[in-house]
Amino acid sequence: MPASAEVQTPPLDEQPPPQQFVEPVPQDEVKVSIRNLNFFYGQTHALLDVSMGIPNKAVTAIVGPSGCGKSTLLRVLNRIYGLYPGQRAEGEVLLDGQNILDRKVHLPWLRSRVGMVFQQSTPFPMSTFDNVAFGVRLYENLRKPELAARVEESLRSAALWEEVKDKLDRSALSLSGGQQQRLCVARSMAVRPEVLLLDEPASALDPISTAKLEDTIVSLKREVAIVIVTHNLQQAARVSDRTAFMFLGRLIEYGTTERVFNNPRTARAADYVTGRFG
């Protein structure tokens, strides 16, 4: 439904609401800087000139109606789109000042710095311990006690340690759905990334598991920059410090979560956060 249909004629003494309102993130807080990003699925232009800063040690939520490009934006940040032919990104995405869209970027290195958790939990077919240790074993040559300590630390940071500490050698597939999802968070955290991408991580979880996962997210922001894509506005309001609203491939509004929810400046964002569409 086009939101423009709902824009009312403003009184004469007021300016019409802007089409876009993006608050800049202070330069010293920026972890990832996205500049004029365009994305294509073959001929389909899915992201149009997106520019925004993602702050370090904070949670940034990306919201918007289905198909607005929020997952696409997330999938650019670790270049996982590169698995599929015909998908390409143009523009700049600077991670600590380095353009990750550069062809010369070593992808395993990039992905060890930018972790990702998906909508569907995807434990590997091995034990809980081996799941968490999987990424660590790829990059680091830790001795047994060190590896065990890292696994424990990661499971604790995902608030899963107490529940699984006695069955670390059991198959991860025997865990519940909510536990599996937190295991995926722990697996990503074990390689000590700097950015963690969450693609609708709670959409398949029950309310209690969702609450646990949200607590985990809030506590993890002490260590990493977190970007979460969510369909759930309440969730965005609960966990995030900043919120970006996207519509039809464009970034419409971006700012502190409190401001975007309480005082949206663009008509489309206002309609969306008040539940008039989307």
Partner: peptide, 15 residues
């Protein structure tokens, strides 16, 4: 096998 199983592996930087 689900697509996301491969993507999770790739997402960890696995060759």
């Amino acid at each position: 096998q689900p697509r996301t199983l491969r993507e999770s592996g790739v997402g960890l930087g696995t060759p």
